[in-house]
Design a binder for these strands. Structure first.
Lengths: 251, 251
DNA sequence: CAACCGCTGTGACCGGTATCACCACATCGA
DNA sequence: TCGATGTGGTGATACCGGTCACAGCGGTTG
């Protein structure tokens, strides 16, 4: 694996022993089965390691920008990356926050079109980069990997559909916010007084995720607090009444 | 190729000489390069023909239903199929109208999840069916086909994103309708008085495509007519002032 | 033919939300 | 220390568009 500078504000990671690291990180990876290429035959993993370059990114760095000429895929090792798209009049829609293990820029890379989204780092991240040419070559050599890629794409598509239904069909901001909060489950832990969720997004960003204005998000939060559904302590959110939240989300 | 009964209201097509038809229809296919598997090596096509079964469907037939256990993919040969999704409270969102050459049920088939959409026939259609097991087997044997599948998925995803941006970011119904009309280009022909588009959808269906109510669609149409942008003659729509329509779509 | 159905066309009403304008804090760097 | 900047919180207002109600208007069907 080679080190590589990416974009403008990129910090370098100390060099790693050649070829070993991706395998190693694979073995250590907590959600190993979810990772795209981890259970390939040995030779495949080795080849993959050769064409991969790794880099770390600080908060605020940008992996790629919507419409930008395509370079390749980024495999997110850790951290969080915000995927968004912007309309002509400057409004932004955040599609989702990518978690470790996800492969970013995959649709663009396989189709050869420009990136369809913008990827911004929200939590300091480490990502492995593979250029398009090498990635496609790899897929051609390893048929099962191609199939695995297709599966990833299918799942991404599926979640896009779900997202779409949520945004397109419910014009009520409270519903959308409730649904959004309920879908934070990957980040949740149980506390004595309810489910605790770490939520680093600003109201503005939440608004962009559910297709509403910043002010209404603020108001909805106030409303939910008044109704004893939520509580906010710093950057952690406590869901005190999940059932009620769910009922708001439903109807 | 074997014939196969699908669903409830299926009409049978006369049997075809074994193995030949898909190749034949491929050769005849007007958008050959767009079709997924047409330029595979001979052996691949032959194998594909063996596992394919064909059927024709009348208007109103249903290929598959959202949430339904997955059976396999449908390759649309001709006709039009409406792809939609429904929310808990019964509202429907139409994602797009599939055109010949498209592969339906692909994301679900590769991921193994239930169908994520409902597919209804709007224009009498012929489709080739391949069961999941056989399809996956085929992909495993033919690595390049898997890659091609990934590309299709990537493109479908891309169009979903575009759709999403349109619906999620513009809360103005006029914008959304204008944009929708401008995207009808595949069906358009030029007339002396403007661009003529064949549009068989009802106002209700258009409403479901752009995330609005039936009445507002009717009103917007009236408005556009008054502004000399549109004209409607039966099921053909004449866009008299595309520039104006585009400017509405933009801002 | 009447009866019925699905589609289009309108009017009236009203609620949710975007928008604007402003304030109150924090945090941060000069 | 003092602005500058980003964020949360709130009120007032306008207005878009959803919803309801109903009326015409081809079709189709018995």
């Amino acid at each position: 694996m080679k080190e590589r500078t990416v974009g403008l504000e990129t910090f370098m990671r100390p060099p790693a022993p050649y070829g070993l690291e991706i395998i190693e990180s694979c073995v250590k990876c907590p959600h190993r089965e979810e990772r795209l290429f981890c259970n390939l035959p040995e030779a495949g993993i080795k080849r993959l390691a050769e064409i991969t370059s790794s880099a770390t990114y600080p908060r605020g760095a940008t992996l790629f920008v919507e419409g930008q000429a395509l370079r390749g895929v980024f495999i997110l090792c850790n951290g969080q990356v915000k995927l968004s798209t912007t309309s002509a009049d400057g409004k932004t829609l955040i599609l989702r926050i990518a978690e470790p293990g996800e492969v970013l820029g995959l649709p663009a890379t396989v189709t050869g079109k420009p990136y369809e989204l913008t990827a911004d780092v929200v939590e300091p991240s480490q990502a492995n980069f593979i250029s398009r040419a090498e990635f496609l070559g790899f897929l051609r050599e390893h048929g099962d990997a191609a199939l695995r890629v297709a599966q990833q794409l299918g799942e991404t598509y599926h979640s896009a559909i779900v997202e779409m239904r949520n945004i397109g069909l419910s014009h009520s901001a409270s519903k959308k916010l409730a649904r959004f909060l309920l879908e934070l489950s990957p980040r949740e832990t149980n506390g004595k007084d309810g489910i605790r969720v770490k939520l680093t997004l600003t109201h503005e960003e939440i608004a962009q995720m559910i297709g509403a204005s910043r002010e209404t998000v603020t108001r909805m939060f106030a409303d939910f607090k008044k109704k004893q559904i939520l509580e906010v302590k710093g950057s952690t959110l406590i869901i005190k009444n999940k059932a009620k939240l769910a009922s708001i989300a439903r109807e």
